[in-house]
Design a binder for these strands. Structure first.
Lengths: 201, 201
DNA sequence: GGAAGAATTGAACCTTGCTTCAGACCTACG
DNA sequence: CGTAGGTCTGAAGCAAGGTTCAATTCTTCC
């Protein structure tokens, strides 16, 4: 046995892997999923196409990771924003989460469009479902809290949450797919969400 | 000149064309867009693969027509349902349109999923946007009427309409993608839409 | 330095399914 | 009938892009 992986090699590989994920992410941010090819990722990461396959078994798996990471980033940001407002009111907390999500989406429209609505392969599609679901779950628990606090009327929290996520998606999709910032829709969207939550009877 | 298209030939061709569109539509209803290949359409329509290209320049164009037809059918059904309730109240009219849409969607889940959310090619994707837009437009004008009638508070009708379409989509997507009927979500969804429209102050 | 073995390269390969097209078959009309 | 021209067939062609792999380069350790 004349060769054994050393610490340095492992570290270098980890960096390469990360560079690949970063390159793929940047490609989605810049061009959308449609503009992503393995060759393109390789070029941007400065590795050979074949090298990607040392770290990921397929294109689907690579981009599933890209999406998963992006999703978790967004979910954390939104739920943090919600948590910060929790002291004032449950309503405000929900609206803050929604607003944060929208603001961030408008900052990377291509990525947001990819996460929300762009056609992608099945493996990646699954991550998108996770995204809608995760975000919906955050809202749902906030909604449950708001109901308990008597701030909004009794309702099916899961449906309301899914409805809000859907409303955000559809309202943003057109602006986002154009690369437009769609800044002016935000107030109206927040008003919509506010009404959809309802007022205590 | 020893040949000139006769009435009978034209008629036969029109029938063939229609058979192709019908076969393609049935395929989407049965298998979703993912299960549609040109060979499959040809088999089902009992023509040769090549014959399809006598009527449609590409797969995208064929399915764009399939989607366009399906969309207009749904839009007509929903707006009719809305119009029928218009005498009672503008609110009721909007809710009737939404309910009709959902009920019909649940009857052909694969087609509904394809129209709402399934990954498709760009040409067909455009039709999907038209779908969301058309449905949104119907709701928007009903919403404008409701505002004018003082039944709901002043609001950006376009955003509310888009929000409602999005909410419907997202609430239905999970059930639909599973082929589930999702019957129990309808009341909660209608309640959501009702709240989102708002009550006069 | 050199042998053993791992990582990396990138051009060739392969798969999938849309599209084409040369030939067979019809239809119209003299 | 015959011929001119259209229509239909379905297997072959082809494009795009993901994946593979023989050759090369690098890493470890004696």
């Amino acid at each position: 046995m004349a060769y054994r992986k050393t610490e340095a090699v492992l570290k270098k590989q980890a960096m390469t892997r990360e560079r690949i994920v970063r390159a793929a992410t940047e490609l989605v941010v810049d061009e959308g999923y449609a503009g992503c090819s393995m060759a393109g990722v390789a070029r941007r990461a400065e590795v050979a196409t074949g090298s990607i396959y040392q770290f990921f078994p397929s294109k689907g798996e690579l981009f599933a990771e890209v999406f998963r990471t992006a999703v978790s980033r967004e979910v954390v940001a939104a739920s943090q924003a919600g948590a910060e407002k929790l002291t004032s009111s449950a309503r405000a907390s929900i609206l803050a989460a929604v607003e944060t999500f929208c603001t961030r989406a408008m900052r990377s429209p291509k990525m947001a469009y990819a996460l929300i609505a762009e056609p992608v392969d099945p493996l990646v599609e699954a991550e998108r479902l996770v995204f809608h679901q995760s975000f919906s779950d955050i809202l749902a628990s906030a909604i449950v809290a708001a109901i308990a606090a008597g701030e909004i009327p009794d309702q099916d929290a899961g449906i309301t949450a899914a409805g809000i996520v859907g409303a955000i998606s559809d309202v943003l999709v057109l602006p986002l797919s154009r690369g437009d910032t769609g800044e002016k829709v935000l107030p109206a969207l927040l008003a919509f969400v506010g009404r959809a939550l309802g007022r205590p009877d």
